[in-house]
Nucleic acid binder design. Structure first.
Lengths: 120, 120
DNA sequence: CCATACTATGCGGATAGGCGAATAGATCTG
DNA sequence: CAGATCTATTCGCCTATCCGCATAGTATGG
């Protein structure tokens, strides 16, 4: 994607996605680094530099993770001068994360021991 | 785990999980087969045989997926005679899936094209 | 108790996806 | 335009995790 690229993806709002699509949606949050980034951006608009510092990984890696979060609809980007600013527009994203955190917290012990899912 | 194994994991309900735990929680739903199984069980209590037929994979694989869903707190198991019956107890699981489906649907086009997440 | 039916685990192979490093591309400022 | 700066892509490597097949373990019911 080039030019004044579509910063915020304007998808046509389908009625209902098939399971594979939803699984892919969840997969975006299945990586600790990406989830950490999302929660960071959730607490306020951030620049790439903010994200790079917060994530503690290389700029190219952060770029990929942010692209992924954008494609999946969690985050939108806005250009201000030379820099891009990332934020979460849809309040349902917060709902989703809060709900998941609550559920995960209620079962943290078993979750951390699940041998079917590797330790991070 | 042996004996009259802990069918429903009785975790001690922590206040807040660290990011890695929540990511692991999401990872359980990041696999299409597991998500499909969860949504199947969500629509009513199921036996292993039901799940094997519905998922279309081998019994050992289904066993692993169900164990994963149980460990992560999505599903509970109940023994009735020789068979185990699987169901979803916590209504927040339904909330989570519905919310994710809505968000995924609103961005299905971009989601399905995200090159950072492989096609299923 | 023992046989049977149900459920879980181990193994090897294949693929997805994360990482750093190097590089390419795009956009703003002057 | 041109240089500087910010962002994205490519590459090779490595680990995680999926699968089927074979096998082991457990609980029930006689």
């Amino acid at each position: 994607m080039t030019e004044s690229a579509v910063l915020t993806s304007t998808a046509p709002a389908d009625a209902c996605s098939h399971t594979g699509t939803v699984a892919r949606f969840f997969r975006a949050l299945a990586d600790p680094t990406r989830l950490r980034l999302l929660e960071f951006i959730l607490r306020g608009e951030r620049t790439s530099a903010d994200c790079i510092e917060h994530a503690g990984i290389s700029q190219p890696r952060v770029s990929v993770h942010l692209s992924c979060l954008i494609d999946c609809g969690y985050v939108t980007a806005r250009r201000d001068g030379k820099k891009l600013h990332y934020s979460v527009g849809d309040p349902r994203v917060t709902e989703l994360v809060v709900l998941a955190r609550a559920l995960a917290a209620d079962n943290a012990a078993a979750l951390d021991c699940c041998p079917r899912i590797g330790q991070d």
